[in-house]
Structure formats: structure tokens, C-alpha cells
Amino acid sequence: MTESKTAAALVTCLKGLQLGGPVLNAIPRWLLESMTNKMMESESKKAKKGDVTMRMLAPTLHYDGQLLMEMTGTVDRFKSLNADALLLGGSKGLSYLKPALDALEKVLPQAARMEMPGLDHGGACDISQTNRGGKPDLVAEELRQFFT
């Protein structure tokens, strides 16, 4: 990111976090970077005022990795949490996050868990961004039920 190689950084995240699956892992890196650049250019051209594009989100990705590293092995710290908690996941979500939800469900005394059928990590994305799997109405309904 510091070298303004946004596509290269996104491909690193895509591969490192296993977001693309076996098919994308088989595509050469140079081709993935080219495809990612074209996708971001197309998205930016179509973006309306106020839309958040992947190019805009990309610089925040290092925080995700940082949090994953910092939180590894800390699930027992949540045992004393005395509040209702909603654990949401998608049935098509990242497989390595499901054990984290399982562990949290066991240690959080007041946890409710919901797995949303057919959704992946982009389930809460704006519905206009269909390429990100957005079905925010489904997520919003679960949140409404939880908070009422």
C-alpha cells in the first residue's frame, strides 16, 4: 500500500486470508493483479457520490490482519463479559472463522448465535454492490430482532 500498489496488496490479502478459494489460487499473481486493477477501475467509474469503493477500503485491510494477530488465543478473556452478545456468521463464510465463533459461543455467558444461509463475509454489504454478495436486509433483520 505504501508503494501505491493497491491491487498487489489486495491480491496478497486475497491469497493470505484465503478469500478466493482454489480457483483464484491457481491464477498467476500478475494476472490477478491486472484483473483486480480493472475491477477497481470499473467500480470507480460506476460509483455514485457517497459510494465506498474497494480502492477506498483497501488501506484499512492491514487493521484486519493486525486484529487477527492480536486476538489469537485470547478467547478466555471474554468469559467475564456480562452482556448479551450476537454472533453472526454466514454459511459460506470463511471456514477459519467458524471455530472462533464456536469458541466465543462457548465462553460468552449470554451469547446468541445465528448462521445466515447463503451469506459470506460480504453479507452486510450494500445491496447495490451485488459483486460483494450484499444482502443487508437479512443481516439488518437479525440485528433488529436481537436489539428488540
Results as ranks from 00 to 15, higher is better:
Ile127Ala: 13
Ala112Glu: 10
Glu115Val: 12
Arg132Thr: 04
Gly65Met: 13
Asp137Trp: 14
Lys106Leu: 08
Leu19Pro: 00
Glu3Asp: 11
Asp51Gly: 01
Phe147Thr: 07
Ala85Gln: 04
Asn25Thr: 07
Glu41Gln: 09
Pro59Asp: 13
Ala7Lys: 00
Leu119Glu: 02
Ser34Ile: 10
Cys125Gln: 06
Val139Arg: 04
Arg144His: 14
Cys13Pro: 00
Ala112Gly: 08
Met69Ile: 15
Lys79His: 12
Ser4His: 14
His121Gln: 15
Leu104His: 11
Met40Asn: 01
Ala124Gly: 09
Phe146Leu: 09
Glu41Leu: 11
Lys5Ile: 07
Asp51Ser: 07
Asn37Lys: 04
Asn25Leu: 05
His62Asn: 13
Asn82Gln: 08
Leu143Asp: 02
Val23Lys: 03
Lys106Ser: 13
Glu41Gly: 02
Gln129Ile: 02
Ala85Lys: 00
Thr36Lys: 00
Glu3Arg: 13
Phe147Asp: 05
Ala8Gly: 07
Cys125His: 06
Gly21His: 06
Gly73Met: 12
Cys13Ile: 11
Tyr63Ser: 05
Arg144Lys: 14
Thr6His: 03
Pro117Ile: 10
Trp30Pro: 02
Gly16Thr: 10
Gln129Glu: 08
Leu31Met: 14
Met69Tyr: 14
His121Met: 10
Gln129Tyr: 04
Pro22Trp: 01
Gln66Lys: 13
